[in-house]
Design a protein around this nucleic acid. Sequence first.
RNA 1: GGGCGCAUAGCUCAGUUGGUUUAGAGCGACUGGUUUACACCCAGUAGGUCGGGGGUUCGAUUCCCUCUGCGCCCACCA
Length: 915
Amino acid sequence: MLDKAYDPSKTEDRIYKMWEESGAFKPSEDESKEAFTVSMPLPNATGQLHLGHAVMLSLQDIFTRYQRMQGKAALWIPGTDHAAIATENVVIKKIQEEERIKDPREELGREEVLKRIISFVDKSQDTIRNQIRKMGSSCDWSREAYTMDEPRSRLVREVFCNMYNDGLIYRGHRIVNWDPKLKTNVSDEEVNWKEQKVPFYTLQYGPFQIGTVRPETKFGDKCVVVHPDDKRYKDFKHGDTFECEWINGPITATVIKDEAIDPEFGTGCMTITPWHTQVDFDIAERHGLDKEQVIDFDGKLLSIAQEFEGMSIVEARPKILAKLEKKGLLVKTEENYENKIATNSRGGGMIEPQIREQWFVDVNKKLDTWKGKWAGKSLSLKDVMFDVVRNDEVHIIPERFKKTYFHWIENLRDWCISRQIWWGHRIPVYYCSKCTETVDGKEVPMSFRNVSPEGTDIHEACGSPVHQDPDTLDTWFSSALWTWSTLIDHDATKDLSLSLEKMLEKSPDFQRFHPNQVLETGYDIIFFWVARMILMTTYNIGDLPFDTVYLHGMVRTRDGKKMSKSDPSTCIDPLEIIPKYGADALRMSMIVGQSPGNDFGLYEEKIAGYRNFINKLWNASRFVLMQCEAASLEPAEISNLKSQISNLSLADRAVLSALQQLIDDVSKGLDEYRLSEVGERLYSFTWDYFCDWYLELSKGEANPEVLVHVLRSIVTLLHPYCPFVTEELWASIKSKDAGMLISSDWVTSNAKLKDQSAQDELQTVIDVISAVRTLRSEQGIEPGKNVTVTLITQSHGELLEAQNEQIKRMAKVESLTIDTHPDAAKPENAVAVFMKDIEVHLSLDGLIDKDKELEKLTKEKQKLEGFIKGVNAKLGNEKFVANAKEKVVELERQKLATSEEKLQKVEERLKSLTQ
RNA sequence: GGGCGCAUAGCUCAGUUGGUUUAGAGCGACUGGUUUACACCCAGUAGGUCGGGGGUUCGAUUCCCUCUGCGCCCACCA
């Protein structure tokens, strides 16, 4: 017999082990089965499981389990990401703290630092793997992938070389987001903008006045830019020069006219610093102006600043301002100017835009080297990224995120993919120490690419030593290949003679499981990952990565705040929750009530609520098992229902019918990814219908076979949501020839069991029982006390007569009279409830509380009158009758008739009470 | 500066093509309970003019416009 209360901590680990060891997570090898693939969004190899992971694991596990039970070859591929910058930072900090090494990169060198990182990752990968297991994730561990493992590394190099050869990856001098603290640049997506109030300075620049918040960048400003149409500056012509006294002495300045200037802002003119500002860089490019570096890569001023050389910005700024003021060049200072400063979201410092020679993916270049359905067309990466979503080849749930996606593509600039950190895929480009080539008119060391993971030491053509590009790739470069890099055949990747196309051909998993059906992730990484996967996959393999993108919202606190690790009081740790409430409860609390794309609050009471639900399910099963025992029936011996169908009670027929509806609703809802709604439906069916009514009714006349059948169905339908408890229960309730629930078939509805009239009839009985209970409660009758009830009805006599034992038992009625006479006498000294064609009279021993009853009936009367008035107005409206659907009109008429009948009875009752 | 979202019971939220809903759930509140599973429970009750205003419609929480209040994303107005 089951324990009195369900204890998840006793079962979950054991069940997970059973699943894993049985091979249940592996997709069926039966080739005739349709494939269903989901790729797990790579948790960081060094991370700890947090609620963000818990949400995505729950959602993806529900998708996978449902499809697996539907008979598909369901594959959910787990994996981890090397998280380049994040991981390197963690390890560097650790070395600094533990070994008191101030600059580990400087002191230990590349090889040693990488060694430390790898050993750290090795250790922490196990942690995240086990935490993923704790959530019940039914992913196929035998196919686990890692962005830095051999097969994935090969593909990264392969893709890089392909795109380089096709001119999509290029090296160029561009403004990048440079982080002087971490000594690397980051992509536009990794920059965070923070609002700050800073002083705004107006400086005299020859005859012009220019505004700035960064006087320290102004040393090299040799051009003043105005809008071509600005009448204030019409006397200056484009290209005019003038002498002007500037920070460190006289300079010759040039007037530039460019439409990038907003004449409405400030004085309508500005000087430009092309090396440290994107807009200025663009202007300088348009007019062929010089670009000069003012701040070095450590954030210190260069020699152009003369006496300020070597100073940090913080140190130099007040001194520069003092000098400007002394020279009379500082016109005014306005405080509290709102400005946005850029910081590195990967835990770095303030971003200093710098011109650097970096690697980029060209997103605008049209080219005709596309594969698959795009073969032969001249398209840019942007074109395809745009088209596949616009043409609904990739569906996005919720749909509104399409707009966000389009808007992002419109603003997209070339993707800077090189990073100056060591942890990551090193750029597979090698330079000869001797040979040179000419690129853009400049002589540069000759470079070549190599897809081999082995280092290349010698330039074969000349025998000179070579060196590899020191930079590594953006971590998202490798994650962008994830849907298919995970399906690649390992041996194929070892064969350097194979092209990417051939490798894919030789990968059975790829052939079978790509593309993914659904890609599930948080809406916050739609740009980092979803968009880049579309970009890299369409181009490199000529196929889409996935059919559908399901975006979940962010987990928040009860009051809608972000959960932050720095404030433990707001933060729920799944690893603390699971032992206390169970993974099932945590899963449900994050799925039900959560709609895609919207943030949702999570707090302990909510989780406790679902823990209660799971315990309810547990106890319902306990009850069913007790009924079996009482009937000397082994659940395992019950294989199907057919033999029993002839001998069913009303409640049996009703519950079986309602179950068919439930099965249809749940299956349809899951097909359409409406997880919250389905979860709610299951919750309410289980608790409010199955437990509260069917189980209670079965205490009067139990049919163990129906009980077992319905329970099995419920447990099966709930399995994707709460896999542990359902699997545990399954062991006790399954038929003897059934295997584990995880591998069982989904339930299908049986039209023969649908019986709407049984459901309606049972509902009438339920309503009568509820009415009696309400009357008892209103009159303060002790719960245990038996009462006398008279039911007056014209059309339900037979039904109520047949169910009278159930009504008596469920409502604690001792004497039940059912009177179908048209002029039935109403009992004296009783209180009543009027239902549709049923009057429920409860007789009292003592006197009824007349005032209370009058008050209740008066209230009811008013309500009915108001309602009837409304319905009458509706039906009296010719346009309504003419325009509304017949069904709707008919319904209104029925409502009116029912309420009028009720009102009449209420009025009669009131009259008799006041006589 | 653009774009998007949210505003529904004390709290957290559902509500799928506008009418089977005189708006639902969970938690909380209140009244009463050891009834053959479950106090992680049972029975019952209270509580909302669906943010304000306007429009479309026979009919709007649901569609459109507008205002107010929050929140998010994108965009380097120096």
